[in-house]
Design a protein around this nucleic acid. Structure first.
Lengths: 247, 247
DNA sequence: TCTGGCTATCTTGCATACAAGACAGGAAAG
DNA sequence: CTTTCCTGTCTTGTATGCAAGATAGCCAGA
């Protein structure tokens, strides 16, 4: 599931590699995405890298600072609020539109929640971040509607970027509980209740953000001093002067 | 509002010109979009046209047939159903999330509904198509959430393409009534009711489609015979062998 | 008349070249 | 020591060139 970035370039590998890197919290907001570096990394010319960047830009995942570079978006506080609002709208609307929980759906969600629990026990924070976002995508997949899945995947990617910017501590247990409650309501066939629970769940997560913390306002200074950007955990990153910066 | 396509190219004019052309039903599904023609039309090189096409492709509005060309999408019956389902999810979720109808919102919707009525009286079908789709975008704008507006704009564009493919007759009055009822519920502050009405409204429109009609299955034959594609009304179009075709 | 294949042309796919702007680092002036 | 300016370097923006594939039309053969 993450064996990408090999030498082959089947078409839109660049785009999906970056998205999945964000979904699994391996790529931080503000990360610089150099056309040249990605080109050599994927063994293609800048042309195709640019195409991927354009696509990612229309998906709201990347933005370009003219003649300066491409960067993974750093959502502002207002944008963060809008993302959560959009997610409440879409997810609650989706759950309300559901009528039955199929057996396969039941199994898929159950398996997912078990994975969440396992990751919590193992304390694998990156995997937890991925799973916490993926739960909502899984629900969308139950509808069989590719459009909704795509919408929610992009919103989830942005959500993860937001949490990396504004979330000081990771309330994994709380989120997991929220997911379980939603699952319970779905199992009971009470999708209106599930919708309300999903709104509450997203509200909880949103409330856990510290939106007063500006999105790395010192990034320029930091980069000019060659300091690691936003050291978030003992996981040191100053190994190489990696591509990192914000505008 | 439609003074685009002049000689100037302020950046993403190509993309927006095509989208607004679809929203106002001036561009039919299956329309061929030649990179060269667009390039000369906008006075740029193919590079920028391609960028616009890439963006439109990720928005689900255009697709490419390898080495054959770019075409405005012709949604299949399954895709059409998915689009309507996504719209029900998003619009109902949106209305349910609303709490108040501001004065400006009231005025905007009221003005819009009057425009609808005017276009119905005038019998301006293209304008009607535009207005019927725009109503839903207007509602999204009330939320002030740009993300939701973008989502609904793209879904509306696809909806219009779908209606051009599968809608034999145009029940403008019925749609207008649906809009009025939604507006009434909003005015009354009953947003849950407005959400239900919007679902009913979309159901009605979807039921008005003839999804058994395949999306122009004879297009290849038709084009090779140089016949006008899908003559939809007395508005003849065989003036010049315009760029028209499907895959 | 019909069928098969060849070629000319048109399409996109992709790489590359060059231009323009932004930035960093250093030198020179105060 | 501080400030200013300049220049080299690195970034994206855009155009262009070439290649590969698809298509249409024609021509030859049955």
């Amino acid at each position: 599931m993450q064996d990408s970035q090999t030498s082959e370039t089947p078409q839109k590998t660049i785009e999906e590699t970056i998205v999945s890197g964000i979904l699994s919290a391996k790529i931080r907001p503000g990360t610089r995405l150099s056309e040249n570096q990605l080109a050599t990394l994927f063994g293609v010319s800048r042309t195709r890298v640019r195409e991927a960047m354009m696509r990612l830009e229309t998906r709201g995942i990347v933005h370009v600072s003219p003649r300066r570079g491409w960067f993974v978006v750093e959502p502002s506080a207002e944008e963060a609020i809008a993302v959560y609002e959009a997610r409440r709208v879409v997810e609650a609307g989706l759950l309300r539109s559901m009528r039955v929980l199929t057996d396969e759906g039941h199994k898929a969600l159950d398996a997912h929640l078990n994975e969440e629990k396992g990751a919590m026990v193992a304390g694998d924070r990156q995997r937890l971040t991925y799973l916490m976002g993926d739960f909502h995508i899984r629900i969308a997949e139950l509808s069989g509607n590719a459009i909704i899945v795509d919408i929610l995947r992009d919103l989830t990617a942005r959500t993860i970027l937001i949490s990396m910017l504004y979330q000081s501590e990771f309330h994994a247990a709380q989120s997991h509980d929220g997911h379980c409650r939603i699952f319970e309501a779905m199992r009971a066939g009470d999708f209106a209740r599930a919708a309300e629970l999903s709104i509450e769940h997203l509200d909880e997560v949103e409330m856990g953000l510290d939106l007063t913390a500006r999105p790395d306002p010192l990034s320029e200074l930091r980069s000019s001093l060659s300091l690691p950007p936003r050291t978030v955990s003992p996981t040191v990153r100053p190994k190489k002067p990696q591509l990192q910066r914000s505008n």
